[in-house]
Amino acid sequence: MLTRRALALAPLAAAMPARAGEPRLVVAGGGIAEILCALGARAQIAGVDSTVLFPTALRRLPQIGYLRSLSAEGVLSLRPDLLVAAHEAGPPEVLDQLERAGVRMVRVGRIHDPVSLVAAIRMVAAALDRSAEGERLAAALTADFAALARFAADPPQRPRVVFVLAIGGGAPQAAGRETAADAMLGLAGAENVVADYRGYRPVSAESLLAASPEAVVTTSHTVAALGGVEGIAAIPALAVLPAVRRRRIVALDSLYLLGFGPRTAHAARDLAAALHEAGRVPALPHRAWLDDVA
């Protein structure tokens, strides 16, 4: 049920018009927001969820909650013409409530590889009547991924890597098959040593030693939360690994590495450069959507 507060806020939100003739957007999903910005629709975005972190100026917009636990009140108070939501957005009852309230919605499918990313770009571009911009963006990304694929298909070596997230005080969580992390390792020409399960699961020192990774990949958020690289090295399940003792630890920004937005090809290229001899990894053209402009 809609609260009186949501109904009271609606006229105030309606007083903040989008650009003339263009739909007013609310976005749920960091990668989706980056797609909208790369399509030239940034000025139309009126509100975002808490996973929208880039460009950083979007963080100052009104918030609608966390991606998986959105606030119906927050969305409705902004009076969007269109809610553009990632596959993971929810909960379902909130999305159902928004649809019953008349909110037009675009639900983007799961993005897990270059093909699904390009499909998502075309879908979002069509919904915004920006198909020409969508084709230009899709063509640029297709070219970038193709250049990276030529390297990943026959790298000088294929390093064995484990991707971990340290959650709470227990064992670190390692990425298995069908995760964004697993996909990024493949794009970077590396082998994920965790292949016997899907998703993330806690891993022990014994299982990691048996897998014998040559490097550990994680997010900069995880490293910061643990007080730096030394904090990673202090985790018992990781401290025993020769790769950790040699400080073969690669950390990249979470959204950049796992967001599967327009920056994904460059993120995979940066990961490849960190895991291989950097000089052997092809450079990619600079793209406007890489810039964090105000």
Results as ranks from 00 to 15, higher is better:
250 V>N: 07
216 V>T: 08
208 L>Y: 05
210 A>C: 04
215 A>V: 13
243 A>H: 08
201 R>Y: 05
214 E>L: 04
211 A>T: 03
219 T>A: 01
162 V>T: 08
235 I>W: 02
181 A>S: 12
256 Y>D: 11
193 V>F: 04
159 P>S: 04
217 V>Y: 04
207 S>F: 00
159 P>Y: 05
250 V>Y: 02
198 R>A: 11
248 R>L: 00
165 L>S: 08
195 A>Q: 12
194 V>Q: 07
199 G>Y: 10
227 G>A: 12
228 G>K: 09
257 L>P: 14
167 I>W: 09
194 V>M: 15
182 D>Q: 13
177 R>P: 03
253 D>C: 05
257 L>N: 12
163 F>K: 10
240 V>Q: 10
260 F>K: 00
173 Q>S: 15
242 P>T: 13
238 L>D: 09
244 V>C: 15
208 L>C: 07
224 A>Y: 00
205 A>H: 06
164 V>W: 00
216 V>P: 07
180 A>Q: 09
193 V>N: 01
265 A>V: 07
210 A>L: 13
170 G>T: 09
180 A>M: 13
165 L>T: 11
168 G>Y: 11
266 H>C: 03
162 V>F: 12
192 N>Y: 01
248 R>H: 12
210 A>K: 14
258 L>E: 00
248 R>E: 14
255 L>W: 02
264 T>A: 15
244 V>L: 12
235 I>T: 01
201 R>L: 13
257 L>E: 13
222 T>R: 00
248 R>T: 01
174 A>Q: 02
248 R>P: 01
253 D>I: 15
234 A>C: 04
246 R>K: 15
242 P>R: 12
162 V>E: 13
236 P>L: 04
237 A>N: 06
242 P>W: 12
262 P>S: 10
257 L>F: 05
176 G>F: 02
217 V>T: 07
236 P>S: 07
229 V>F: 10
186 G>V: 10
208 L>P: 06
217 V>W: 01
244 V>N: 11
188 A>R: 13
229 V>Y: 11
205 A>Q: 07
256 Y>T: 05
226 L>G: 04
256 Y>W: 15
262 P>N: 13
244 V>A: 09
219 T>K: 10
229 V>P: 04
221 H>D: 10
189 G>D: 00
246 R>F: 02
223 V>S: 09
176 G>S: 09
216 V>C: 04
175 A>R: 02
253 D>A: 06
203 V>W: 02
245 R>N: 08
213 P>L: 07
191 E>P: 00
256 Y>A: 14
193 V>Y: 04
215 A>C: 14
207 S>A: 10
213 P>M: 14
184 M>R: 09
202 P>Q: 11
202 P>H: 09
253 D>H: 07
256 Y>R: 09
265 A>C: 12
196 D>T: 08
163 F>V: 13
222 T>W: 01
215 A>R: 14
234 A>R: 15
255 L>Y: 02
228 G>E: 12
198 R>K: 07
203 V>S: 03
245 R>C: 06
168 G>W: 05
231 G>P: 08
172 P>A: 03
206 E>A: 14
179 T>H: 14
241 L>C: 09
203 V>L: 12
260 F>E: 02
258 L>D: 00
233 A>Q: 05
162 V>R: 11
176 G>E: 06
238 L>F: 00
178 E>D: 14
195 A>H: 03
220 S>R: 15
